[in-house]
Amino acid sequence: MPNIKSAIKRVKINEEKNAQNIAVKSAMRTAVKKFELAVDQNEENAKDLFKSAVKHLDKAATKGLIHKNTANRQKARLATKLSKMA
């Protein structure tokens, strides 16, 4: 544990930001899994879940939690699954 006041503040801020990043990434994974489950079960709300998954992927990419190209690749794969379902 640091002794300097500014270092103590940095540790606290880093822990808060880490918790926020984990929450955003977890929400992204959950949205993608919900969409994939809906596609597997041929549910009508798959299109809404697709929009939600894309939103979460874009948010994670904007925050730098995943790379922009990774988000685009995942969105393309999800769109392919959605089009095959229809």
Results as ranks from 00 to 15, higher is better:
residue 2 P to G: 01
residue 2 P to Q: 11
residue 2 P to C: 06
residue 3 N to P: 06
residue 6 S to I: 13
residue 7 A to K: 14
residue 7 A to Q: 15
residue 8 I to V: 09
residue 9 K to P: 04
residue 9 K to E: 12
residue 10 R to H: 05
residue 11 V to N: 02
residue 11 V to A: 01
residue 12 K to R: 14
residue 13 I to G: 02
residue 14 N to T: 11
residue 17 K to A: 06
residue 18 N to W: 00
residue 19 A to S: 08
residue 21 N to P: 03
residue 21 N to K: 02
residue 21 N to Y: 01
residue 22 I to C: 09
residue 23 A to G: 04
residue 23 A to E: 04
residue 25 K to Y: 04
residue 26 S to V: 04
residue 28 M to N: 03
residue 30 T to N: 13
residue 30 T to C: 04
residue 30 T to Y: 07
residue 31 A to I: 10
residue 32 V to M: 13
residue 32 V to T: 13
residue 33 K to L: 06
residue 33 K to W: 12
residue 33 K to Y: 05
residue 33 K to V: 12
residue 35 F to G: 00
residue 35 F to D: 02
residue 35 F to H: 01
residue 36 E to W: 09
residue 38 A to N: 04
residue 40 D to W: 02
residue 41 Q to T: 09
residue 41 Q to H: 13
residue 42 N to Q: 11
residue 45 N to H: 13
residue 46 A to Q: 11
residue 46 A to N: 02
residue 47 K to L: 10
residue 47 K to S: 14
residue 48 D to V: 09
residue 49 L to P: 07
residue 49 L to S: 07
residue 49 L to N: 08
residue 50 F to P: 04
residue 51 K to P: 00
residue 51 K to A: 06
residue 53 A to H: 08
residue 54 V to Q: 11
residue 54 V to E: 08
residue 54 V to T: 03
residue 55 K to Y: 08
residue 56 H to Q: 12
residue 56 H to L: 03
residue 56 H to R: 15
residue 59 K to C: 00
residue 60 A to T: 02
residue 61 A to Y: 04
residue 62 T to R: 11
residue 62 T to Q: 07
residue 63 K to C: 05
residue 64 G to M: 06
residue 64 G to H: 07
residue 64 G to K: 08
residue 66 I to T: 03
residue 67 H to L: 02
residue 67 H to K: 10
residue 69 N to A: 11
residue 69 N to T: 12
residue 70 T to R: 06
residue 71 A to D: 00
residue 71 A to T: 05
residue 71 A to W: 13
residue 73 R to K: 12
residue 73 R to C: 01
residue 74 Q to I: 12
residue 74 Q to K: 15
residue 74 Q to G: 04
residue 76 A to D: 06
residue 76 A to Y: 11
residue 77 R to G: 06
residue 77 R to W: 10
residue 78 L to R: 02
residue 79 A to W: 00
residue 79 A to F: 10
residue 80 T to S: 11
residue 80 T to G: 05
residue 81 K to F: 01
residue 82 L to T: 06
residue 85 M to S: 15
residue 86 A to D: 07
residue 86 A to C: 05
